[in-house]
Amino acid sequence: MSIMSYTGGTVLAMAGDDCVCIASDLRLGEQMNTVAVDQKKVHKMSDKVYVGLCGFHSDAKTVLDKIMFRKNLYELRENRSIKPKVLATIISNLAYQHRFGSFFTEPLVAGLDPVSHKPYICAMDTIGNICTPEDFVAIGTGAEYLLGVSESFWRKGMNSEELFEATAQSMLSALERDAASGWGAVVYTITKNNVNIRTIKARMD
């Protein structure tokens, strides 16, 4: 078993019409043992920018601290809230600085531009290679399971409710088959005016 699937966990982000959805499962494990059942892999960075961290949980925590530090420094220096694209670049640089001894975590950024409200989603590998699709990105142990379902559910120009439904259904289907993720999911629906956080029940095992 690789270190990337040691603790398990899955994150999915989908982009819609002026809204994005980011969902994660709630399981934290140690290979086959479940250690915690309320571990969100999605973290708030600013009002409309969220980051998901999958992979080895210890590294994900370390990376989260480092991202927070750099993001806070940026916001203090610039005196404005961070854009998702800028945050992604910051994380990418951080990851690439550890090119030859990388953190075993794949970061994902999802959010709306604070000014133009344009949706932005991206994921990167452990050394910070950013991938910015227009539809959806998935990372973690269940990424492969997610891709098949999301490919069928996603379509252009979904509103926030449709987007939530697509994200939730994709997530639930993937959790059905991925043993390293599970214990329900939390879905953040980020729109121009608010952020809706919903916890959904899946297979609780």
Binding site: Y145, G148, V149, S173, A174, R177
Partner: peptide
């Protein structure tokens, strides 16, 4: 090769597990 992509979709649409 695409079993991990096909199966959750069928789970959702045929098995109605969600």
């Amino acid at each position: 090769a695409a079993e991990p992509m096909l199966v959750p979709f069928l789970d959702c649409q045929v098995g109605h597990v969600t």
